[in-house]
Every structure is written in C-alpha cells, then in structure tokens.
Write a protein that binds this DNA or RNA. Structure first.
Lengths: 112, 112
DNA sequence: TCGTTTTATCGTATATTTGCGATATAGGAT
DNA sequence: ATCCTATATCGCAAATATACGATAAAACGA
C-alpha cells in the first residue's frame, strides 16, 4: 500500500480510530475486564486467564499501555497493571460524542 | 501465528472487538460522518470527499456493510448507502454496556 | 553467589489490513 | 448497438497485527 493514508484524515477521526483499534481484539477486552475486576492490579495472572502465551499477553498489555488505557508499574520482579480510569473517561466520552454527533447530523435529513 | 485464537474468547468479547474493528480506521469513521450528514444516501460522493482511490473506498464501504453499520442499495448505475440506524443503536449500546460494566466491576476494588 | 520467578523483548512465521490500478459489470443515454 | 458513468471485484504489493518460542533482564530467596 505504498504509503498508508491515515494521517490525511482529521485528527479527531484518527484519534477515534486509534481508540477503537485498542479494543479491536477480544484479548484486549478480556484483559480490561480482568483488570477492572481485580482489587490488586495483577500482572501475570492475566496469562493464566487468557488462552494465550505469556509473550503474546505481554504484547497486548503493551498495546493497551501505548493506547493509554492502562498503567503499568514495576513491583519487584513483577509488573502490576491497572486501568487508567482518568483516561478511560476520556475514551468513553470520545465514543459517546461520536455516536451522538452522528445521530445529530442525521436529524437534518430523512435518509432512513 | 499458526492459528489465530480469537474464537477462544467469549462471544461477547469477540463481538465487541469486531464492532471496534469496524471503526478502527479513520476512513470508515469519515464515511459514517458523511453518510450521517447527507440527506440522500449518497454513493460515489464519498470518493470525492476522501483522500483515497475509488477501489479503496469501495472496500471500506464493504467492510462497514459486513459489520452491519451501513446498508447499501443499488440505484440505477450507482450504489446508495446509508447508516443502518437500527443496528447503530445496538452498536452504541454495546459500547456503553462495556464501559459501564468495566466501571461497575471496578467499584468493588481500590486499585486506583 | 546462584538459581528461581516474573516479565519484556527479539526474532520469526503467518494472517490480515490497507491501498491501488486494472478490469468487469450493469444501467442509462445517444 | 454503442458509449459513458458508476461501482464492485480481482490481483498484487506493502504494511501491520497476531502469535509463539527463545532469550534477556531484574528482583528476590536460599
């Protein structure tokens, strides 16, 4: 694909797409659910719960971290992750805004 | 990657990931916005608006259609697309449910 | 110090996504 | 019938994503 064209779209659309991509794999959704459930921000326990190899889980955690959805701190020999709730709110809001704006736009027409 | 493991996750997580993937590219978000704005469910006008080749746009439209987010009808020599609002509501609700359930789970702990 | 445990990263294989040009198809106009 | 327009699909190339095993790094205990 020569050069990918993603950067030619609006910042907002790129950001939304980026957010959506962060949760576009069931493993990452499952990880978020586990993190939300656990009182301690467990680490390798996620590996036990998911049907994936340790290295693969680590990769998904890295992606969620890059996206901003989770925070990771080193705790001795292990890593401790938890949901970045502050960011999560922004994330949530962003989706709601998209959905609302689409609906709002549609109110001016009678397409459906 | 030998065999991809997506099907080993819960139906719900797979569905959510699938939904997220549908809007994980700025072109598809842009298409949804255009469709929501237009009073007639335009077709190739989308190509004019997006910085992509006709064939690429057609492919994104197909993906949105496969995901269920848009409907396409043939209108003479051209294709007419519009947002599938009924499905859109389900889509919207699914995300809200995920976000709410994550927050609800977190209320039992003090991780953050 | 040496081994153990835990996790990140590297290298690699394969699958999927993205993108485009070329072509096919189908309807409408002349 | 022939041409034109609009769109879908095919074939291909390149980029990304997914997955794993092997290995590296880091902290802890014996």
């Amino acid at each position: 694909m020569a050069i990918h064209k993603k950067e030619e779209f609006s910042q907002k659309d790129q950001e939304l797409a980026f957010f959506a991509k962060a949760i576009s794999h069931p493993a990452r959704i499952a990880i978020l659910k586990v993190l939300a459930e656990q009182s301690e921000c467990i680490c390798g326990k996620i590996v036990d719960v998911l049907p994936l190899a340790q290295s693969t889980v680590s990769q998904h955690l890295k992606e969620l971290k890059t996206a901003g959805l989770i925070l990771g701190t080193i705790d001795g020999p292990r890593s401790c992750y938890c949901i970045n709730w502050e960011f999560f709110e922004k994330f949530n809001l962003e989706f709601n805004t998209l959905f609302k704006s689409l609906k709002a736009k549609s109110e001016n027409n009678s397409c459906d």
